[in-house]
Each structure stands twice: as C-alpha cells, then as structure tokens.
Design a protein around this nucleic acid. Structure first.
Lengths: 199, 199
DNA sequence: ACCTGAACACCGTTCAAGT
DNA sequence: ACCTGAACACCGTTCAAGT
C-alpha cells in the first residue's frame, strides 16, 4: 500500500493498531488477535504497541470504545433521518442496532463482554451509558407525544433496551433459525410497541 | 486434597478438567483459562488434556454445553415449582435465568459468544435450541390458557426470549445502574406480560 | 486406552538501548 | 517521544515413547 520507506516513527501507530485490530477481529475472530501479529502486519517491532497500550486489554477496551462510538453515530444518524413518531424512531434505532450487530459481530461481543466489566475505563462506561441514554431519550420523547405509556422513563427504557440488545446479540452470533430471522425484527419491533403503548 | 498417590491414569481426567476449567473461568475470567495450567492444577502432564479435547476450543464448547444443560435444568425445575398461570411461569423462568446469569456470568458469555457460532458442535446447538424451546412451550401453553395473545408461537417467543436474554446479559456484566437493577427485573417481567397480553 | 515429556512455533510484557 | 531487539516466562499443539 505504502511505497515510501517507513520512517522510524510510524506516524500514528496507535490509530493503525486499532484499525488493523478491528480487521482481524472481524475476519479471524477474537482468538486470532495478537499484539505481535499486529506489530508484524504494520512493520513495527513487537514491543512498539506497548508504548500506546499498556497491555492487550487496554487495546481491547479502546476497540470496544470505538465500537460504542460508531454505534451511537450510526443510530443517531438513523434516528435523525427517520420520522418523528415513536414508532418510526424505534424502528430506526432497532434497525441501526441490528445492522451494526450483523456487520460488527465480534466487536459487539467485545463491547458487552464481561471481561472488562468491573474495571473498565471511565470512557468506555460513559460511552455505554450514552447509548443507553439514547433509548431513554426516545422513550421520554414518546411520552411527551402521548405515544408511550406514562411512568418513570428508565423503568420502561430498561426493558426496551434489553430487548434490542438481546436481539442484536442473537442476530450477531447467527443462532436465529433462518425462517424466524426473516420477520424476526419486525415481530420484535411490534412487540416493543405493545409493551410501550399507553393503556 | 488427595493424599493417595495419583496413579498413572487419572480416573476421569475429562470431567476433572471441565470442573476445574469452570472454577477458573468463574474466579479469574476467560483470559486466565489455560490448558497447561489446568493440567498443572490436576497434577497431570501438559499434553494429557489433548487426549480428551482435540483443542482448547473443544474444551470451551464442552463448557458451554454444560452451561446450557445446567440452565435448562435450573429453569425447568423453577417452572415446575411455580404455579400454572402464564404470569407465574414467566416469572419463574425469568428469575431462574437471571440467577444463572449472576452466578455464571463468564460462562453465559461463553455460551452465547460468537466464537464458536458458525461451526459449533451439534450437541451445543441442540442444547441452545432446547432452552429456546422452553420459551416457545411456555408461550404455547399461555395461549392455550387464553392468557397470551393469538398468533404463531415463534413470532412471539422470539421477542420474549430476546428480552430475557438481553436482561440476563446486562445483569451478568454488571452494567446496570444499581438503582435500576433494584426493580429492573420486575419492570422487565411486567413489560413482557404487556407484550404478550391478548388485545 | 491413556499419559509423559521433549520439541516447535507461537504468545504478552519488560526494559535497556538506540534514534 | 517513540521505537528496537533481546530476554523472560508463558502459551497450544504435535508426537514419539512409555505404562
């Protein structure tokens, strides 16, 4: 790709590591992800990554953070494109989430893995919350429009988020029987709407 | 623990490996799981595990299978203990699932990991389906009792399962804000009931 | 049938030394 | 400030050889 001789400094090794890491995560799975191979691919010594990530877990955390940021970006864009009704907003969010899950299956796994759960970086937890907040906001707006049942936001946002997250996870690992995957998401959206409908 | 000198044959090395593997999975996480350390812990040579599991992934698959079997056992028992109404059956299943998730967080992660998704063993996929079937059966029975809306079973079972799976996952990785975790499951159950209620 | 132990090709992490 | 390269203590997997 790069014809110029690589200089002593890579330029932006940190970013390059993350990009390459995500590629191998997608193509060969999390088990195949190795710092040494990453370094080899980028034509850099095996010790170099340690300058940018104190250990492998730090790279995985950074990868997960990127995942959340992309997910937020994609779903926000989808919701802005969609109509204002709660049904349309939910539809947009759900499809964006599942799209993301299908094209970033291994990354999604990483994002919600227990591995970095207890001591995850502040930034990672914040990004996770920010995506959750998107659901909370959607519910709140739906209530204001009278399209969603009354009650504390979070106590409805949690079940809704839970359903979306569950379906995205199932879609990602491909365990859905093909027939049900067909209209699966439509059914899930309809069911969420019922769960949210005013009495 | 064992005062008798260990004989040449371990006796049941396969079972011992799985038990020990689950312990370290629970205590030290999936990253810390190594065949060589397992062998060391059991006082056996590092090559011995390979007689029982062709590779590490095979051990992980076997572990996931055990997880599904235990989950099915626990939730079946809970449902048998519970009352016959759909609400009671759902409550029992949901609480059993979340209990399992909380006490087997890393194992649950493994069970639904994308890692062994495409080429998982037949037994593993079967166990996964068997647990899903439990939800399908519950919905079917609820319909027969007139407590669940009409319609094809799976098209309602999928959203319901999705919600349970999503909540179990969130509970397992501990990302639920503590206040919402408090009444979270109650809210989720109520929401599922609304999603299933006849018109 | 089941296990040992050496061998091989990998890892992650550390750290002096180089630029 | 950023990277190299040797060193260390680990891996998983294979395979002849032992019991």
């Amino acid at each position: 790709m790069q014809t110029r001789r690589r200089p002593y400094h890579h330029g932006d090794l940190r970013a390059a590591l993350l990009i390459r890491a995500e590629e191998t995560l997608r193509d060969k799975g999390p088990t195949a992800l190795s710092l040494r191979e990453l370094a080899r691919d980028l034509g850099v010594s095996h010790g170099a990554p340690n300058r940018h990530f104190p250990d492998k877990q730090a790279l995985l955390d950074a990868l997960a953070l990127i995942g959340f940021e992309r997910l937020i970006e994609i779903s926000t864009a989808a919701q802005e494109r969609a109509g204002e009704s709660f049904a349309e907003q939910l539809d947009a969010l759900a499809r964006a989430f599942v799209d993301f899950a299908l094209t970033n299956a291994a990354l999604l796994d990483l994002m919600y893995s227990v591995k970095h759960a207890p001591e995850a970086s502040e930034a990672l937890r914040a990004a996770e919350q920010r995506f959750g907040q998107q659901v909370v906001d959607m519910i709140g707006e739906g209530q204001r429009r009278g399209e969603v049942r009354e009650g504390p936001w979070q106590r409805l946002a949690l079940p809704v988020f839970t359903t979306l997250r569950g379906y995205a996870g199932l879609a990602a690992n491909g365990t859905l029987p093909t027939e049900t995957a067909e209209h699966g998401l439509d059914d899930v959206i309809a069911y969420i709407l019922r769960g949210c409908a005013p009495d």
